[in-house]
Design a protein around this nucleic acid. Structure first.
Lengths: 270, 270
DNA sequence: TTGCTCCTCACGTCACGTGAGGTGGC
DNA sequence: TTGCTCCTCACGTCACGTGAGGTGGC
């Protein structure tokens, strides 16, 4: 018979842990003194304690450990739990490696540039969205070429939606495709399902995982935002799928106060 | 200006998170209606939200994120935090890989043997301990060869300690060394510091990390315990340093009720 | 009027760590 | 008598999720 302190030393656990395991019925003392409440353990109980610790070390919760030890799970179920745990651990390792890549990227950035300049790139799941859109071709991807094309497209689009009594359900979204003689510009607004509008095309943009960044200021400076995104994607060991969007979150008169979200779709991590 | 719901959608976070960030002062709404308490956010605040999420994704706590964003840390400190984080992540990945090896080992064991037989091997740090010991040579490592050697050693040792008025401070510890003509058996008892005993050697056993298992029953069956340890060490991708100990936790008259802990010291993981 | 969104508490999560305040045996 | 160990509450941790119960604008 050992007191709780001796038993804790032998098992290399804290006294508090033993009290906790007693409280939840995971490992109860062999004997409890009725008068003083003192707990007494037997050496043979170290075997059970070791089982608890071994399963805990594999990353199971105490509840799961309890089910396993109390034989509430058979071999097949235990097999399933272990496979699940394996999958979780593998995912956890991948997530940590991605974080590690992010930390490395920032470290090298600090060493090169002093502080963080590109500190707001975030990977997000972008939900699918139904949009109404108009298209036109611009000469190049540069802002001076895009702006005179996209402005009238949005004016047209909003007029037609308005005329059809359709209210957009979110901010405008622009996206681009390379074509032989330039860039195909898509000017789109999200619309509710089942609202047909004459003279505009309705398209379902697919859900995607994207690296995103917020650009504040006029469209003349949007190239810097795209640069930042590309740098981040590269530094974090990801690859873009080549699809990208601009979401116009706020477009007041004063264009220097515009707020735009840039999204670059990502391929699944290697 | 966006309501909390719209802002949450744009930032792909939950409304509850935004309320939480407001509560801890990490990201407060641009405006709060005095009458209704409604929170209103500006699109430009998405930049700050993204910074929060980006740093959180690296694994920083919200407290750390707050310090970083409020510029309470300079570039050098941030550099230090990132290096620390990198070390933590690397350690976390190693720990997860070790768990993964453990899960794999159990899976393959279940597939081969039905259920778990060796489910109580645990890795522990063994603290250093000062012991008084006597030695003798046995012919081999087999229990029949060891027992007749170690028994009288312990009788002698306990007599001498008793005669010197020294009380052991823990259970007996035996350990073994291979020598040219057999096995050198060390029979040891932990003693308090600064208690000289005539005719016994005092040795400081070093701290070590060891794989341990509890053996219940007589010494005749101890070989199975050592086998189990060796199998586990191999299956989990670790390597023993060649040093091992037996700790006699409970030794009543009836030897079938003995409880012994076997410890095999491990080399640091690769 | 019915939905929808917003609000403020406040409990629950997970496995203990850490006092607070008090008692029993050497 | 002084230490040492034991005991039972009970709060704190971390970042929210999840109701409960109620209000304001279309």
């Amino acid at each position: 018979m050992f007191t709780i302190g001796d038993f804790a030393r032998l098992g290399r656990v804290s006294v508090r842990m033993l009290r906790h395991y007693d409280a939840i019925g995971l490992l109860c003392p062999a004997r409890v003194d009725g008068g003083t409440g003192y707990r007494y353990y037997e050496a043979a109980q170290l075997a059970r304690l070791n089982r608890v610790i071994a399963l805990k070390d594999l990353g199971f919760t105490l509840q799961q450990v309890q089910s396993i030890l109390d034989e509430k799970v058979d071999a097949a179920q235990l097999h399933g739990m272990l496979r699940l745990r394996r999958a979780q651990l593998e995912a956890g390792v991948q997530a940590d490696l991605a974080r590690l890549a992010g930390v490395e990227a920032r470290l090298s950035m600090i060493e090169k540039e002093g502080l963080m300049s590109t500190n707001d790139v975030v990977v997000k799941r972008v939900p699918p969205v139904r949009v109404a859109e108009l298209r036109a071709v611009a000469a190049s991807f540069e802002s001076p070429a895009i702006t005179p094309v996209i402005r009238p497209l949005y004016q047209q689009l909003c007029q037609r939606l308005d005329a059809a009594g359709v209210t957009p359900v979110g901010p405008g979204i622009a996206y681009y495709e390379e074509v032989p003689d330039g860039v195909l510009v898509h000017a789109a607004m999200p619309v509710p399902a089942g609202a047909p509008v004459p003279d505009v095309t309705v398209v379902d943009l697919p859900a995607t995982e994207a690296a995103t960044v917020i650009h504040r200021g006029s469209m003349a400076g949007i190239g810097a935002g795209w640069q930042e995104l590309a740098t981040w994607v590269d530094a974090n060991g990801r690859r873009g799928s080549g699809q990208s969007r601009e979401v116009y979150l706020e477009c007041p008169e004063d264009e220097t106060r515009w707020v735009t979200e840039l999204q670059e779709s990502l391929l699944p991590p290697a």
